[in-house]
Write a protein that binds this DNA or RNA. Structure first.
Lengths: 142, 142
DNA sequence: CTTTTATCCTACTAAATTGGTAGGATAAGT
DNA sequence: ACTTATCCTACCAATTTAGTAGGATAAAAG
């Protein structure tokens, strides 16, 4: 029961882009790799996933680099999670409908469903803007 | 981000023992295996873990079999989870204190911590007695 | 007291997943 | 023309998962 490193690095990447959002240039892959202490090569995959999910874009030309593809307050932790995994499904059989072969399955399946929903909504309730604000606040006097 | 099958089978096993708690005999491994559609051999591991965790006991003698080792309302989903895994730690570095090498780590770590706590307390807030009652209620008129 | 049956315990394993690295093609800026 | 950044596909070692297998032990039944 763990989140994978892609999601974690992906979240860091997204937060970095959010913090850089106001500045003139976009953010280069190399820059992110250095700040987040991950190889450029591995970041390749992470950025590819974030792009595919439509969360970031690479604006070319002068002052090129990656930028968020929508306002930071419209990107939740769950959006970032889903960029790397499928929708959150904490036990495999959760999507199955219809027959319940085992006598206890109903009530337990219901429980897993509730937990699944609860985790999902926790992740949906936090967006990048909040995180960035909090970060700025924490680092204000340093 | 999934719960493993041991935890799922373990929970089913525990619920079955709860539902059988009032009857005279304990519950045999074989019986559980049949009801839960899992091999006796695999159940071996599951039961071993539950025993090690102190959640069940095997009472010998006449009317032998497994029983809960404490009242059903004192056993939570989280207790069962912990019988199969360690304490819930959704990202590896969560326990680290002290240095934060990356500039964003503070606020993100804080977020992961909160999520971790929230999942934990969801799991702690549901106990076997509630599940069993709900189950009985659902199956009342069948 | 022998046989059967249930539990206990250790070892093994095939398949899937994770966390990357490697190589090169492509494109674009200088 | 050269360099640098991105894009894209393939590969891989280590770990985890979801079991099976074999046999020792204990205890109940006949």
């Amino acid at each position: 029961m763990k989140f994978n490193t892609k999601t974690r690095y992906g979240l860091r990447t997204m937060l970095e882009l959010t913090l850089n959002a106001e500045r003139d240039e976009g953010t280069l892959q190399k820059e992110i790799a250095e700040n987040q202490d991950v190889s450029v090569k591995y970041l390749d995959h992470i950025i590819a996933d974030l792009k595919t999910a439509g969360l970031i874009v690479n604006v070319g030309g002068k002052k090129s680099g990656y930028r968020l593809n929508k306002p930071a307050e419209d990107i939740t932790i769950y959006d970032i999670y889903v960029a790397f995994e499928n929708e959150l499904v904490i036990i495999d059989c959760l999507h199955l409908n219809g027959e319940f072969p085992r006598k206890q399955i109903c009530v337990l399946k219901e429980y897993w469903c509730e937990l699944n929903q609860s985790i999902k909504s926790s992740m949906k309730s936090k967006n990048l803007k909040e995180l960035a604000q909090k970060h700025r606040n924490v680092n204000k006097y340093k």
